[in-house]
């Protein structure tokens, strides 16, 4: 039973938030993880999520928004079911990261930070994701795909499209 009546989150997330608010020496420390887990639940950090998190941590909504706007993984609008994040930073760039990004743009018919009409995929060019030695690398939601080529990328996209993709959360 959540400490917040009528929580907008799933019971599991609400229970996790109840716990998160108690484990730190200062409650506010739970803010960044809470925002990320809220996004996992809802697809983005909605106004209602901001409001509930502020209440849970005894913060102003303004405080929450101030932190939210700092972190690049957090978003305030929905994206596709699968967010395809192509790294083009130096190690990936040297092994075809930009070609991979171009390929994704062409196959999905969308650009950076856009979503396909069916809501299945979003595309994002991202900074280093920490997979430099297995470049070029892509993250689909939280799932890593390494050592890619355009052909392998097609297979990855097909897997997600046909519901075979992993959804790490």
């Amino acid at each position: 039973m959540s400490t917040i009546p009528n929580s907008i989150f799933t019971p599991a997330t609400a229970a996790r938030f109840d716990k998160l608010a108690t484990i730190y020496p200062v409650k506010r420390s739970a803010l960044v993880p809470m925002l990320l887990y809220a996004q996992d639940d809802l697809g983005y950090v909605s106004d209602a999520a901001i409001s509930e998190i502020a209440k849970r941590l005894d913060l102003l909504e303004l405080d929450v928004r101030n932190v939210l706007s700092y972190y690049s993984m957090l978003r305030t609008a929905p994206v596709g079911k699968y967010n395809v994040q192509v790294c083009t930073n130096i190690s990936c760039m040297l092994r075809g990261g930009f070609e991979l990004l171009d390929h994704c743009k062409k196959t999905l018919h969308i650009g950076h930070k856009e979503t396909t009409a069916d809501g299945m995929f979003s595309l994002e060019e991202v900074e280093c994701i920490g997979a430099c030695c297995w470049a070029p690398a892509v993250q689909v939601n939280y799932d890593f795909h390494e050592d890619l080529t355009p052909a392998k990328m097609d297979a990855v996209l097909a897997d997600y499209r046909e519901g075979r993709g992993k959804d790490v959360k």
Binding site: I90, S91, C128, G130, C132, W134
Partner: peptide, 11 residues
């Protein structure tokens, strides 16, 4: 918080 481009050892 390993995020220096070129670094994936802590991974």
């Amino acid at each position: 918080d390993e995020s220096e481009p070129g670094t994936c050892k802590d991974h």
